[in-house]
Structure formats: structure tokens, C-alpha cells
Amino acid sequence: MAKEGEAEAPIPGKIELFLGYVKIGLLGFGGVGPWSRHVIVEERKWLSERDYAEVLGLGQILPGPNVGNASVMIGRRFHGLAGSLIATAGLYIGPLCILIALSILYELYGTRPGVAPFMQGVAAAAAGMVIGTAIKMGQNLRPPPELIVVGLLAVAGAAFLRLPLPLIVVVLAPLGVFLSLRRSWKRAA
């Protein structure tokens, strides 16, 4: 990992950091993941592709929303605790305002005859969007066959058997890490 504060990378000021994250939050239709990378790596060049992937990877294995975790870590990198707070606030403030407005509208008009079918159509499409994203992610990651099985077990456990999440994680996490470890040994041998 690159040391903190390497020479070439421009360090964003606090206002820049906030505005960058406001932009990420407001652009993020269907999730902020892709936009977060676009703004931080390509547009503003705050982090290199590698550094960003590392931060996001950490955000993913820590509990909680991963882009939210990444905002805490990236904010901290530039401005310490204040940076974490600024980046996280920026990320959530725009979407939160929009959601409050949407909720009020939904409460007022959600039960109207025309709205229910409309929302059902969006709900069906949004469901497909989640499944499609999962397939795409799985494809891009190219996991070895035994880890694909672990992934499919997670699908079966959560969607069909309806097992509680703690149980799924407690059973599958050691299995997944063990299989991954075995791969590394094989490669080393």
C-alpha cells in the first residue's frame, strides 16, 4: 500500500472533499459504487486505481455499507476525523433530502389507483437489477469453482432456506476463507 500523503496526488481541501462526496451521493442512481470510483479516481484523482480498490476492498470486508466505510477511510486519509465526518455527511445529505421528499409524496399519493401498478413495475425491474448486478460482479471476479459453490450456498441459504444471516456468515465465512487459503498454498507449492 502507498504511504499516506504521497507527492503527486493532490490533497483535496475540506470543502472540495465535501462537494466531491455530495456529487457522488447525488449521481448514484442504483447505488453509488460506480460513481464513487469515477469521481475519486478518474475525475479528481484523489486516489490511484490501486489505492481506491484497496480502500473499497476493506470497506467491503468490514461490516456496514461499503461506500460509507470507504468515505470514512478516505476522509480520514486527507483530514483525519474531521475529514471522515465531512466525507460521510456529504455522501448522505443529498440522498437523504430527496428521500424525505419522496416519502412524503409516497405517503400522499402512494395509495392512489394509478400509483400501485407503476410502483410494482419499478419494483420488479429493481429486483432484476439487483440479480443482474450480482451476476456481473461474480463474473468479473472470476472466483475458482469451489468458491462459486460457496457463493451459491449463500444464495440458497438466504433466498430459499431463509436462514438467518448470522448463521450463514458463521458457517460460510470460515469455509470460504479456508478454501481461499488452500488455493494460495496450492499456488505456492
Binding site: 476492498g57 467491503q60 470486508i61 419494483a123 420488479a124 429493481a126 429486483a127 432484476g128 437489477m129 439487483v130 440479480i131 443482474g132 448486478t133 450480482a134 451476476i135 460482479m137 461474480g138 471476479l141 472466483p143 468458491l147 462459486i148 460457496v150 457463493g151 451459491l152 450456498l153 449463500a154 444464495v155 441459504g157 438466504a158 433466498a159 444471516l165 450463514i168 456468515v169 460460510l172 465465512a173 469455509l175 470460504g176 476463507v177 479456508f178 478454501l179 481461499s180 487459503l181 488455493r183 494460495s184
Partner: peptide, 22 residues
Amino acid sequence: VFERGMVPIAVGLIAASGLLLA
């Protein structure tokens, strides 16, 4: 190594979410 073991579970859980929503 840890991440490689955990990511398939995360992706599987996301797929399961989609199925429940559908």
C-alpha cells in the same frame, strides 16, 4: 486471501436479495 474467501458470500447474498425482491 480473506477477501477472496468472503467476496463470493457477499455476492451470493446480493443475488439472494434480488430473488426475494422479485
